[in-house]
Nucleic acid binder design. Structure first.
Lengths: 157, 157
DNA sequence: CTCGTTGCAAAGGATTTGCACAAGT
DNA sequence: ACTTGTGCAAATCCTTTGCAACGAG
């Protein structure tokens, strides 16, 4: 994957720096988890584990599940990754390079991304009316994708 | 097309009718669960159980947890209630009287409601760009409420 | 009566936690 | 060396399922 226009965020060096600033340590597990999140588009903790297990190959070792969870939490607190809840029991993580919002199909689980400015207007209204600051990176809209919509029309006339 | 935009949704009679139409039965458990969902603003299955246990009082009996889950699923398939995922492990149900969207504070969990037309513009754009139909009733926006925002500013200057 | 329904208990999947050992700095 | 971080296993949470008894129509 071309890391040429990778934001400094996903750069291992940036990770080291962020960690050091807090007196934390740079471990291979942390670097690997961050790399996996960057590589996968919308990764669940489980998917990240699977990816790391693959990469490790036979004989190799991958971080433990609990380590993945702890690391993800840490990376998020450092602002390096974000997570969104797309539905029951499936938080997905993505690198925090640039904010974007998620759109999930309630039928097939398909995930699409949309530009963050899609919600600018709504965000303004919420700020004005409720004093509520929307966090676009965490937003997930639920609905039906085109394919499932067509299918529904066919099957339920 | 179902012309079910009546507030009569929470009416036991409407429930009976909907059930009968499908050859299903009206049980006291189903009526109670629907009543609890209507009464509570944003109820988790657990909260619904607690409410029903209260209402039953000592000596009385409340529906079993599994029955609550099954009933909620049923009521949703009948279009009488809707649920939303507000974050990790806590789906909330609300009566389907009129659609509205949810706004959740990531810090304190505070839930606010907003008018569904807040997202009309965004929904149109998604429909046009991705062919994606947003389900406003299921949408939850995440962010920070005024109180938590102020607190954050104080503590992290 | 005849099925749809319920309660109970056990199964499951996902995440978290306690601890002793391993490993960054 | 001094602490933080990791793996392992057990503990939790939330939800679902199998089944025999129960009750609505």
């Amino acid at each position: 994957m071309g890391s040429e226009h990778t934001a400094a965020h996903t750069d291992p060096a940036a990770l080291a720096e962020q960690l050091r600033a807090r007196g934390l340590r740079l471990t291979p597990q942390r670097a690997r988890v961050l790399a996996a999140v960057s590589g996968l588009e919308h990764a669940t903790p489980e998917a990240i584990g699977a990816r790391l297990r693959e990469e490790a190959g036979p004989g190799g070792s991958a971080p433990d599940t609990s380590t993945i969870y702890r690391t993800l939490e840490l990376l998020e607190s450092l602002g390096l990754v974000w997570h969104t809840h797309l539905g029951r029991g499936a938080p997905v993580y993505h690198a925090a390079e640039r904010p974007h919002l998620h759109v999930v199909c309630a039928s097939c689980g398909e995930i699409a991304s949309a530009a963050p400015d899609l919600l600018d207007r709504a965000a303004e209204r919420l700020a004005a009316d409720l004093g509520f600051t929307v966090d676009v990176g965490h937003v997930a809209l639920s609905g039906t994708c085109r394919a499932c919509r067509n299918r529904a029309v066919q099957e339920k006339p």
